[in-house]
């Protein structure tokens, strides 16, 4: 009982800190107004470009591996939404290697709050919201055209599966970013991981068994959209992995957090 109350206070405490840091971050971003506008435009443009690529593909090929246009669109929208949190909330991972190298990272270790939380909350990437809007539009369009029933259960499922699917990409980027505690200049690890997300929007059934195993259990991009989508697209034959994906996502995220924190501890010892 006592413990539960402690935990609860902890959460609201962290939320209020997050809000304060967020406001500061937005203020500083607003002072570079042109940069903000161009970056937002750039983000929208990447989404439009991805969509054009998608349309060109379907202009030439009406279906891929038994997935028709609307189903592919559903996957596409699902992946865009699931990839929004990593863009919006976890963007500071990209700065980690510079901070670690220059030694500026030490400032995060001297605060009486969780290092991971403090570091990650420092940057909120507003540009990601454009992607969210784009993804949501696509998702709803595909949802309506496939004719998935709109009930309390399906919507609750959608929210749950979208949120847990987003954990996979977040965890992948945490792992990739944390490599910089051991390897100098490890930016390329992040670049490679980030490129894999382009393939989250395709059905994992196109891969042979070896690669399906890799993308399910080692670099789990198949969980970003494919497995959770099956719950909605083929409701009568959902594989077990789809139902398990929320739990796997939570576990994977927890592991990445532990790995990240392990790096922090290692960083302390070098005393750089």
């Amino acid at each position: 009982m006592e413990l539960a109350r402690e935990r609860k206070r902890g959460l609201s405490f962290y939320l209020s800190i997050y809000r304060k840091i967020l406001i500061q971050d937005l203020k500083s971003k607003m002072s570079f107004r042109t940069d903000f506008i161009i970056s937002t435009f750039g983000m929208v443009l990447t989404n439009v470009s991805g969509f054009i690529t998608f349309m060109i593909l379907f202009h030439n090929f009406p279906s891929v591996n038994g997935w028709d246009y609307n189903h592919m669109l559903f996957l596409y929208g699902f992946s865009l939404i699931a990839l929004t949190p990593v863009q919006c909330f976890f963007d500071n991972n990209w700065n980690l290697r510079f901070m670690v190298r220059s030694g500026d990272f030490i400032k995060y270790c001297f605060r009486p709050i969780n290092v991971f939380f403090y570091f990650i909350s420092e940057v909120f990437d507003v540009k990601g919201l454009g992607q969210f809007a784009f993804g949501l539009g696509t998702f709803i369009y595909a949802w309506a055209h496939i004719g998935i029933p709109v009930t309390f259960v399906t919507i609750a499922e959608a929210v749950l599966f979208l949120m847990t699917a987003s954990l996979f990409m977040i965890a992948l980027m945490n792992f990739a970013a944390a490599t910089c505690f051991w390897i100098i200049n490890s930016g390329y690890v992040m670049v490679i991981m980030f490129r894999f997300k382009d393939f989250a929007k395709y059905p994992a059934s196109i891969f042979n068994s070896v690669f399906r195993f890799i993308f399910t259990f080692i670099i789990p991009i198949a969980f970003v959209a494919y497995y959770p989508s099956l719950v909605f697209v083929t409701p009568d034959r959902v594989p077990l992995l789809s139902w398990l994906s929320p739990a796997i996502g939570a576990l994977f995220f927890w592991l990445s957090y532990k790995f990240w924190m392990l790096g922090v501890r290692k960083y302390d010892f070098t005393g750089s």
Partner: peptide
């Protein structure tokens, strides 16, 4: 002119690649 690096770069890269 714009003090925007990430934005300019992503616009360029997207257009060129597509």
């Amino acid at each position: 002119y714009t003090e925007s690096t990430w934005g300019i770069n992503i616009v360029k890269e997207t257009i060129v690649l597509l």
